[in-house]
Simulated scan of single mutants.
Amino acid sequence: MKDIDITDYKVDGHIQLDQIPTIDDFNADGKLLRKKLKTVSQELSDFQNTLYAHGKYGVLICLQGMDTAGKDSLIREVFKELNARGVVVHSFKVPTKLEKRHDYLWRHYIALPERGKFSVFNRTHYENVLVTKVHPEYILGENLPDVTTVEDVNDAFWEKRYRQINDFERHISENGTLIFKFFLHLSKEEQRQRLLRRLHLQEKNWKFSPADIAERQLWDSYQECYQTALNKTSKPHAPWYIVPADNKKAARLIVATILLETLKKYKDVKEPELDAEIKANLETYKQQLEKEA
């Protein structure tokens, strides 16, 4: 199996999505990919334990991708070795009535990770420059003071949103949130096969919605919106990674490896030193407890 170079996936310049491959299997079969993922995930678990004890950083993991890109299964497989109390998953659906009474970033801000924990956003604040850009009429439901018609949702409006998102991410980064953003890059043909699988397998039927077919017709529009978002919002403090997603097992390993290799660079993340008085009396405490036996 060839080594994974995480810089291959990082967006650090202008990208063209249609020039980026949607599959990479590292010349490895599924069994080897699963075995490697288990090893990496266990190391992530060890890091998260130390992160919790250290208590100064939270880790935000953002997952975006077209329908069937594999977000749910990636979350299940990448994080199953971690302490369940150390990982909180948020799946953002259509905004509720309460959420619409706030600005579009509010529901994401209150879901940010506590220090010492991981938060995983399954779909993210980027839906507000993706699905709403493909369907600008949705913006009218936000009841914004300067938007009364779809014509008001113009280029200047979207530029303002990109700026707001960049400002939001810069703010939380400067206050101790480590940000990872993953775009699961799926081919249109692989999506077709996965949708067919949902229809053919009875146990997968529940995942299918006719809306999946309708949104698929807008594939090119979504790809254009993703490309623009990736180019405008990949920053050193909040980089995007484009993960080939046609092979689910490989995609999971790529995400886990990027997380582990990047987090290990934070050398200040260490378990805190014991209080000097407690440390000096450890033997005494041990003897007290052993005497009880």
Rank of each mutant, 00 (worst) to 15 (best):
D8R: 15
G13W: 11
L17Y: 00
I23F: 05
D24R: 13
L33E: 05
L37A: 03
T39G: 11
D46G: 07
Q48V: 13
H54S: 13
H54F: 14
G58T: 05
L60T: 05
C62L: 15
A84V: 11
V88A: 13
F92M: 09
K93W: 07
T96G: 06
L98V: 14
W106C: 00
R107T: 08
A111L: 01
P113C: 04
K117P: 02
H125F: 08
E127H: 02
V129F: 04
L130V: 01
V131A: 09
T132Q: 13
E142P: 01
L144C: 01
V150K: 10
V153W: 05
I165E: 02
E174V: 00
L178C: 00
F182N: 04
H185E: 06
L199G: 04
H200P: 05
P210I: 05
A211C: 01
A211N: 11
D212E: 07
I213W: 04
Q217N: 15
W219P: 02
D220E: 15
S221C: 07
Q223S: 13
N231Q: 05
T233A: 06
V255F: 03
L259R: 05
L260C: 07
L263T: 00
Y266I: 06
D268K: 12
V269R: 04
K270Y: 05
E273M: 08
E277H: 15
I278R: 08
I278Y: 13
Y285I: 11
Y285T: 08
E290I: 10
K291Y: 10
